[in-house]
Design a protein around this nucleic acid. Structure first.
Lengths: 143, 143
DNA sequence: ATTAATGCAAAATCTTTGCACTTTC
DNA sequence: GAAAGTGCAAAGATTTTGCATTAAT
């Protein structure tokens, strides 16, 4: 037995972060946090919400994603110029990005070794290191 | 003596890539390729062009940057969701990104060691590995 | 002359914002 | 019933596109 139901988990997260657990926020939090880690765009999450009982506007989805990100519940991943992806995995890790499909996949931090990072310019400190392994469809290279 | 004037260099680049050396393209190519390597947005380059004798529309700047990128003369660097940066350095290398100012700085490929890259998912191949070292203003940590 | 490139303005995307209405505490 | 949150539509920001005009071969 887990002892904590998913619903309770999502609720806790919201309250710990100091958010009022409104219907919309709770619904989005459940979609985001109840299953495996995931990468979503606002549009995707909105569509998904519409598919369930949850009625929420796209603007609220954007606002909520931004609030969650600011609160450290989500992390934004920038891989395409015109699009924002939000990652439910806020631990230190990296990404595969499949160009074309726009699919993102996690790479655990220990799976990549980044060494010899040069000193950051004076007056700055390293906030984060993002490694993006861009993938292409591997169609036909066998002779 | 260099033997090749900057103008000629930009012209050669265009022609080698199969572009008609129009006034606009040549002007933009000179702004991009005559000095040191640089990182520009379309907006920046357009503003800069206006500052010189070169009259060119923003749409043409976008088109030109995209054409140059497709031809391998430029490389797009994605670091902020809503903005496209173009890098005149097409060699394998990485970036410092100073959040806040939006400033990009190159890190030579040999200056970072990326090891243990996991196998890419079946049916894909690694097109490129981007390392982005995100920097923050280091205001006051000394006691 | 033919063909490609440019400029403009309009459209397309993605995201944020203002404000009246609704919900939570 | 205060204060915060939501929805909608409008506004912003960035980038692309359609089409008549202009320039390059």
């Amino acid at each position: 037995m887990t002892g904590i139901r998913p619903y309770k988990r999502a609720l806790d997260r919201l309250q710990t972060a100091g958010f009022r657990p409104t219907r919309q926020r709770l619904g989005l939090a459940r979609l985001l946090f109840e299953g495996e880690h995931r990468h979503v765009t606002a549009e995707q999450l909105h569509t998904e919400a519409m598919g369930t009982d949850l009625r929420v506007s796209l603007a609220t989805v954007y606002n909520t994603l931004n609030q969650f990100t600011a609160a450290g519940l989500l992390r934004e991943v920038v891989v395409e110029s015109g699009k924002s992806y939000f990652d439910t995995n806020t631990a230190d890790h990296h990404h595969f990005f499949l160009e074309g499909t726009g699919r993102l996949e996690d790479i655990a931090a220990d799976d990549i070794v980044v060494q010899n990072l040069p000193q950051p310019p004076k007056g700055t400190r390293v906030a984060r290191v993002d490694v993006i392994v861009r993938l292409a469809e591997d169609d036909g290279e066998a002779a």
